[in-house]
Nucleic acid binder design. Structure first.
Lengths: 149, 149
DNA sequence: CGACATTAAATGTATGTACATATATTTGCA
DNA sequence: TGCAAATATATGTACATACATTTAATGTCG
């Protein structure tokens, strides 16, 4: 559906404004789909993303700093996201032995299993960019990189 | 900057995953820039967007429903955003005479003047897609529309 | 060594958001 | 008419986010 129809705004100042608004809108649209999907599993998007980062590190630990570096939303509060995951026993938190200011965060076996289940479900759920060709996806990514130059 | 470097993730599963993550990240990146800009004017992004919708309607009133239709984030609470704007005297709220369930919302002269100032500043601040050509912006918009098909 | 800057994480606080529910008004139609 | 359904907005609540500040540990350099 064209962005003009999505937000019932028939004209835009120029192609820049139109693409800008489309970008914010589409990102929100995708996030909404994911949020609905994860709701059944009592996970928020940032929680899911942190779990994936931890799986990427596994079996090495991550610190809060490393999470912040890799998170999509750098302003969200990594400490408190880890709080929630710890309460659900999806991660563990131990003081880093070599630097007692830092905290070693690790995904638990339960956490890994949850991610496995979600991977399988996400693959069948058609959440994402399945309307694009691989070439279009690559093109999109290049345009987005260029925006942030 | 390439998304790989932004979030320190050297490889992605495929171009779809990469573009997906890039899209969410870039939208957040743009929003962060705007937020920083608007902070000096004590406006949040949703508040600014509502003000612009109201200016588009001016001098006709808008209802809460119309705002929801046109807002980028449809799940945010239009009523309470209008509360904040009303407290700052940027909008007025009166019961709609022809349908007393509805509320007529109008931007005030103060609100219009604030938008004028912000328009001028935003034009000079290079917030947006100025690294793209008009053709690239149009191409981006088309790809985004396609995602939501 | 010891004072001071730096770093890592946690916490405080105000605000925003998501989602369900409530309240008031209007509409449709038996 | 009268009553259930639909509509428009507001409110309640739990949680997330933005950003400043605090606490604790480590580094540094006289």
């Amino acid at each position: 559906m064209r962005i003009e129809d999505e937000i019932k705004q028939p004209v835009f100042k120029d192609d820049f404004q139109k693409a800008y608004i489309n970008l914010i809108f589409t990102a929100g649209w995708l996030e909404q789909q994911q949020r609905a999907f994860f709701k059944d599993y009592d996970l928020t998007l940032p929680q899911f993303n942190v779990l994936r980062i931890l799986r990427g590190q596994h079996p090495k630990p991550a610190t809060v700093n490393l999470l912040i570096e890799r998170m999509l939303d750098k302003t969200s509060n990594a400490s408190r996201i880890v709080d929630k995951l710890e309460a659900k026993q999806l991660v563990t938190r131990t003081v880093c032995p070599s630097n007692r200011r830092a905290v070693d965060i690790r995904i638990t076996e339960t956490g890994l299993q949850l991610l496995l289940r979600l991977d399988a479900l996400l693959a069948t759920q058609q959440i994402g960019l399945q309307h694009l060709t691989p070439e279009e996806a690559a093109q999109l990514s290049n345009l987005l990189d260029k925006i942030r130059d």
